[in-house]
Simulated assay, not measured.
Amino acid sequence: MNVFDVADILVNHIKANYSEDIAIVAYYGSYAQGTANKRSDLDFFFIPATPKGLQASIQFIIRDISFDFWPISWERAERMALFQESQTTIIADCKLLYVRSAEDSERFMKLRETISVQQESGNRRKLVEKSELELRNVYVHLYKLSRASDSLNLTFYRIESHAVLTKVLHSLALLNQTYFTKGFGKNKDQIVHLPIRPDRLESYMNTIMHSYIAADILQACEHLTADTLELVLAQKEQLSNAPSFPDRIKGFYEEEKGILDKVATACEMNDYDTAYFYAVHAQEEIARFLYFAEKGYWPGELMINSAYQSIYEQAGLPALVSLLDSKNLSQLQAGVELLSSLLESHLKFKGVEINRFQDIEQFEVFLRENTASSLS
């Protein structure tokens, strides 16, 4: 059977019944890449132009070959082109079978231009951030693996480790500003030749895919994820802007002082619950902002907090969390007052201007002078 005869039938069907309702018909996969075998199906998709066009979707089998004529909205195609979904190759490498109009053709070609733009150096930071977000999705599967009590249930470990592996690999593709041109199982050559990849990537993959020992599979998943996170953080550091500590943290102290005052007030009122929530929040927030001011990028959600709390400690700021004591809030009150003073001094030493005024008149003069300066 010539699968393209099936394609001709579908296209003629579209022309006869959905000529104004379907914008694009295309195929992708093995036939588009010249790697088809006797069992390969023809991977179709179409972009509907109207709600009626959705009705053309159909799944069928001819001579034991399966076919799936499925819809992709323009919006989803745009997400693929922006690397927001992993199937970018569907848009980048497909072959067109039918185009409703010149406008539809132009819109589709712009999607391919978008893919090229995403791979330019100006978009590197954006894709590194997407890589980190994709890696975050791995941790729910790592959690399930680490909590599993039945190490003999290899099926469970295979399924969860498969999720870990595919998500980490997608994260690595984004980190390299690329996409996989072939499906998993056929793309190993592209994977092992990614410029930015864990040194033991192939070894981890082999353990995850071939091992019969649950503990080894879990360990490989954990190491693969940790090594990939290290690469993501290294790329973020390389992409950080030139040092500009004062600009990065401008206005922070003035806002944060309100939180510190809430802690002090809670201590005075012996309100441990309020003191607890605001004290922990304050130390975490100050540590994150100081890290950003020093590094030029925010600590990611996957970063162990000790990595950025160390900057807080190096600044000589008191650890509010360690002062929490429901039976005696006086130490926390003294600590938060000291923190407020030391933080302001630290920021001033770093060149940060603090908008502090003795009275309303002084604030009014500041506004007048600042406005005149900005307008001149």
Rank of each mutant, 00 (worst) to 15 (best):
A49H: 12
A23C: 09
L42V: 03
V25Y: 04
L169R: 02
T265P: 02
A214R: 00
F252T: 09
N37P: 03
L96D: 04
F60W: 07
A56N: 06
P246S: 05
N328W: 01
K38Y: 03
S105M: 12
I259F: 06
K236A: 06
S374M: 14
F60I: 07
E20R: 11
A148W: 01
L233S: 12
S146Q: 14
V336E: 07
A215N: 13
E132H: 10
L96W: 06
V280R: 06
S322E: 15
V232C: 13
L324W: 00
M80W: 02
L323W: 14
G122T: 05
L172F: 01
V6G: 00
I72P: 05
R368M: 14
A148N: 08
V352E: 00
D271H: 08
E254N: 05
L260A: 01
S203A: 14
F289T: 10
E132F: 13
A279P: 05
F252D: 10
L375Y: 13
N37K: 10
D41R: 07
E285S: 15
I311P: 01
K144I: 09
A266H: 02
L239E: 03
I14G: 08
R79T: 07
I208F: 05
E222H: 14
K295E: 05
G251K: 08
D227V: 03
S306D: 12
R100V: 06
V117D: 14
S146W: 11
S151G: 06
R368S: 15
R79Q: 11
F156H: 08
T371Y: 15
L329H: 04
H193Y: 04
S310T: 13
E364L: 13
Q362T: 15
K348V: 15
L375F: 13
I115W: 03
S310C: 06
R158M: 11
D325L: 03
S244H: 11
V280Y: 04
N123E: 10
V365I: 02
A23R: 03
H141P: 03
L154N: 01
Q55N: 09
K52W: 05
E285A: 12
L174C: 12
E237M: 06
V3W: 06
S171C: 11
M269T: 08
L339A: 14
N187M: 15
S101N: 07
S30K: 10
H162P: 05
E222V: 14
I286Y: 01
Y139V: 09
L317D: 00
S19Q: 12
